[in-house]
């Protein structure tokens, strides 16, 4: 992945600073809707984490997964199942435990699906995702189709001293922002490493990579596991925010929404899918407030963006700021 043009980096940094400042001045701009918007933005930032994790698979490694939400949902379910009913779970225990379980699940699903490609890979991941959905929907493990509540937010303490109150909406907003920035930087580092370059090359031509002496299966499996685990982190954060998980979080509809965010934002750009999450969720919110048939204008908007910006919003920004597209992989 090429280095971002300096002016685009500055623009993205300003956007992050504005997001960081929103809780401080939001009630002046939107006095009646401030709390709602802050919650909405928290949810969007968490979805942006999910979209970036999917971009690692779809936009970088060329693995179009339709089961990515399974890992998102599993992350949330792990929090629900590991949390005591009427007291706070210890975040330092439940978060690593949830991520380890999601990583193992991702590695297992990846191991069984990576050897397929194209439409078969889509079908296999879709099937695994739906297996996860029906597992939680039809079993009594965590409330079945009704889902499960997380009554008390996890405690973030060291030696009995509370560091963060995740029940506070503003705190949770900054946790979401931290996750967004942290995951973006982490994935940039991963993609700048020799491992990341090989994964990027696999997305272009797997056979050519094999001819250079790399085993594409091993690299794709590791990328799949990293992507799945980050999606699990997003699901874990979403479960903290909403205090509730249900099987719909694992369903293919949710995977499809994440895929739309990646496509709208620009595959393979990493920052683009994060923007795609904002475009998708804010447009959805806007259309919902205007008409109950909001899916119609939403569909028209998606078609319009795909037709007019085949490389997504991220591709457009790269073109504007670098004078030419440096994102030829994002087809």
């Amino acid at each position: 992945m090429s280095r971002l043009p300096r002016s685009l980096s500055i623009l993205l940094s300003v956007a992050i600073i504005l997001l960081g400042a929103y809780p401080l001045f939001g009630d002046v701009l939107f006095p009646n809707k401030h709390a709602f918007l802050m919650q909405k933005l928290t949810g969007i930032m968490i979805m942006a984490v999910m979209a970036m994790s999917l971009d690692l698979l779809v936009g970088v490694a060329g693995l179009v997964s339709m089961g990515h939400a399974a890992f998102f949902g599993l992350g949330g379910y792990m929090l629900a199942m590991l949390s005591p009913e009427y007291s706070a779970a210890n975040l330092w225990v439940v978060l690593p435990a949830a991520l380890v379980v999601v990583a193992i699940a991702s590695a297992m699903v990846g191991y069984l699906s990576i050897r397929t490609s194209g439409i078969y890979f889509i079908m296999v991941t879709l099937a695994f995702g739906q297996m996860g959905f029906y597992f939680f929907n039809d079993s009594k493990l965590a409330g079945g189709s009704d889902g499960a509540y997380i009554m008390v937010k996890p405690a973030v303490e060291i030696l009995g001293v509370s560091l963060l109150n995740l029940g506070d909406k503003r705190t949770l907003y900054y946790v979401g922002l931290g996750a967004l920035v942290g995951v973006y930087l982490l994935l940039r580092v991963v993609l700048a490493s020799p491992f990341g370059r090989v994964v990027s090359a696999i997305g272009v031509n797997e056979n050519r990579v094999r001819g250079l002496g790399f085993d594409p299966v091993a690299y794709k499996l590791l990328a799949f596991t990293i992507g799945g685990t980050i999606a699990g982190l997003a699901g874990f954060l979403a479960a903290i925010q909403y205090g509730f998980v249900n099987p719909a979080t694992l369903s293919w509809h949710h995977s499809g929404e994440a895929l739309v965010m990646v496509i709208l934002g620009g595959m393979g750009t990493l920052f683009g899918p994060a923007i795609g999450a904002f475009v998708f969720e804010l447009a959805k919110m806007g259309f919902e407030s205007v008409t109950e048939h909001w899916l119609l204008p939403m569909g028209a908007m998606i078609i319009g963006i795909v037709l007019l910006l085949p490389k997504g919003v991220g591709g457009l920004l790269l073109q504007l700021f670098s004078g030419r597209s440096k994102m030829e992989g994002g087809q």
Binding site: M1, V204, N205
Partner: peptide, 8 residues
């Protein structure tokens, strides 16, 4: 030659 169009 087998270049990758997304790598420098």
């Amino acid at each position: 030659r087998g270049m990758f169009h997304n790598l420098t």
